[in-house]
C-alpha cells in the first residue's frame, strides 16, 4: 500500500471544511435580522419545496446517463413514491426502494 502523507490529507480536509463552513454561514450572516421581511419570508416559505424537487433530479441524474442503471433507478423511484404515498412511513419507503434497486442491479448485471 502506498502512503499518502497524513499532514497533506488533513490539510486538504481542513480546507474543504473551511470552504463549506463559509458557504454554510454566508446566508445566515447576510439575512441576519431580515427574516421577517415579507420578501425573505416568502422565499423562506417556498424555497424548501423548490430546492427539494431540484435535489431529487440531482440524485437521480447520474443513473439516467448509465444504460445499466436507468431502468432500476426509475422503477425503484416509482416504488418509493407509491409506497410513501400509500403508507407515509419513511423507513418502509426508503428500505424497500433501496432493496429493490439493489436486487434489480444484481439481476441486470448478469
Amino acid at each position: 500500500m502506498n502512503d499518502i502523507n497524513t499532514t497533506y490529507v488533513l490539510m486538504a480536509a481542513a480546507l474543504m471544511g473551511l470552504g463549506s463552513i463559509l458557504l454554510r454561514a454566508f446566508p445566515f450572516v447576510v439575512l441576519k435580522g431580515k427574516t421577517d421581511q415579507p420578501f425573505i419570508a416568502y422565499l423562506g416559505k417556498w424555497s424548501p419545496a423548490v430546492i427539494l424537487s431540484i435535489l431529487v433530479i440531482y440524485c437521480i441524474k447520474p443513473s439516467m446517463t448509465d444504460s445499466q442503471l436507468a431502468l432500476p433507478a426509475i422503477l425503484s423511484s416509482l416504488l418509493v413514491v407509491a409506497l410513501h404515498h400509500k403508507f407515509r412511513k419513511p423507513l418502509l419507503s426508503i428500505l424497500s426502494g433501496t432493496g429493490v434497486y439493489m436486487l434489480l442491479n444484481a439481476t441486470s448485471s448478469f
Partner: peptide, 16 residues
Amino acid sequence: KGLEFSLTALIIVLCM
C-alpha cells in the same frame, strides 16, 4: 453496489 440509492429514496420522501 446499489446501497447508495438509500439517499435518493430519502430525498424523494422528503420532497413528498
